[in-house]
Amino acid sequence: MIPLIGLIIGIILGMFLKVDIPAAYSTYVPVAILAALDSVFGGFRASLEGKFQSDIFISGFFGNVIIAALLAYLGDRLNVPIYLAAVFVFGSRLFNNFAIIRRQIIDMAKEGKHVRRKNDEA
């Protein structure tokens, strides 16, 4: 639930705060945002599965963002569009996580179950 709350807060802040991103970072920021969204969807999926751990989420969130931005930067220095690899990987993971989340929510709705936590008994 924490990732979803963070995403909602981020969207609300983004709508009301005027933030201009310099053109020099126009390749890095979208890739970093895609990596962050991948982490948020992964965290939400883990929460639905009752496996969410905040330390894993936080380290994965910042790790993914940093790696994605570094790949984009390295690609710029080498004049090779390496950022496309990050877009492909994080994009496919995002859609995969969304598909799993969707299936879990539909299954829970059909069975009338609530979100299962790690400590709950089946």
Rank of each mutant, 00 (worst) to 15 (best):
G50H: 14
L13A: 06
G75L: 00
I21F: 12
L84I: 02
A122M: 11
L71H: 08
M15K: 15
A68D: 03
I101A: 06
A109L: 04
L34T: 08
G50V: 05
K110T: 10
T27R: 12
S54A: 02
I21H: 10
I66H: 05
S26M: 02
F16A: 12
I66F: 06
G6Y: 13
G14E: 07
A85M: 12
L48H: 06
A69D: 15
P81L: 09
V31C: 03
I12S: 03
G10L: 03
I82N: 07
L48Q: 11
F90C: 00
I33R: 12
L48I: 12
L94F: 06
A32G: 00
Y83H: 14
L84Y: 11
P22D: 06
M108N: 06
I8K: 13
P22S: 15
F44V: 14
L70I: 13
S59F: 14
D38V: 06
A24L: 14
V89K: 02
R77K: 13
F62G: 14
N119C: 12
P22M: 00
D55Q: 08
V19N: 00
P81I: 10
R117A: 15
A36M: 03
G63W: 03
R77I: 08
R77W: 05
G50I: 05
I66K: 13
A36Q: 03
K113I: 01
G91K: 12
S39Y: 04
Y28C: 01
V115D: 05
V40T: 04
H114P: 05
R116V: 00
I5R: 07
I21C: 04
L4V: 11
I82R: 11
N64R: 05
G50R: 11
Y28V: 09
D107A: 02
R116N: 03
V115L: 02
I67Y: 13
F44C: 03
A24D: 12
E111S: 09
K110F: 08
I67M: 09
I105Q: 13
V40S: 04
G63N: 00
N64D: 04
P30N: 12
F41T: 09
L84F: 05
L71R: 01
M108H: 13
L78M: 04
A23Y: 15
L78T: 06
R93A: 07
R93Y: 15
I8R: 10
G43N: 02
R45T: 08
A85Y: 12
G112A: 10
F90T: 05
D120G: 06
A122F: 13
